[in-house]
Simulated assay, not measured.
Amino acid sequence: MIDLLFEGGILFMSILTITLAASIGVFAFHLIKKTQDENQIALIKSVGLFALVFGILGQFIGLYSALQHISQVESVSSAMLAAGIRVSSITSIYGMIIFVLSYLMWFTIKLIHRSDQ
Rank of each mutant, 00 (worst) to 15 (best):
I85V: 15
F99T: 04
L81S: 07
I15L: 15
F50H: 04
I24S: 14
S65C: 00
L31S: 10
T17Y: 06
S78L: 11
Q36T: 13
S89Y: 02
S46R: 09
S92G: 07
I18W: 03
S23M: 07
I32C: 08
S46G: 14
I32R: 11
I61T: 08
V26P: 03
I44H: 05
I97L: 13
S78V: 11
A51S: 09
K33W: 10
G84A: 15
F54H: 07
V87C: 02
S75F: 06
S75G: 06
V73N: 12
L101V: 15
S88V: 01
E74I: 05
S89M: 13
A83V: 01
A21C: 09
L11E: 13
F50R: 02
I90L: 08
S78C: 01
E74T: 10
L104E: 09
A42S: 13
A28W: 12
L49K: 11
F29T: 11
L16M: 01
I15P: 05
I32S: 13
Y64W: 07
V73F: 03
L31K: 12
L57G: 11
E74K: 05
E38F: 03
Q59Y: 05
F99W: 06
Q40W: 10
G8N: 05
F60N: 11
A83Y: 02
E38A: 13
S23H: 01
M13E: 04
G9R: 02
V47A: 14
A28C: 14
E74N: 10
F6G: 13
I18Q: 04
S65W: 00
L63D: 11
I15N: 06
G25I: 15
V100M: 11
H69Y: 08
L101Y: 05
A21D: 04
A83N: 06
Q59F: 04
L16K: 01
F27M: 08
G62T: 02
V100D: 05
I90A: 01
I56L: 15
I97Y: 03
D37S: 10
G25Y: 15
A51I: 01
F54S: 09
L43S: 15
Q72Y: 07
S102E: 01
L20C: 10
S65V: 06
M13A: 06
I90Y: 04
A83T: 01
H30T: 11
L67K: 00
I98H: 02
R86W: 07
F60P: 04
V73Q: 14
S23A: 15
L52P: 06
A28N: 11
G25H: 09
G62R: 01
Y103V: 02
G84C: 08
S23D: 13
L81V: 07
A79D: 14
L16Y: 00
E74D: 12
L31A: 06
I61D: 07
K34P: 08
Q68S: 15
I41W: 06
S23P: 01
F50G: 09
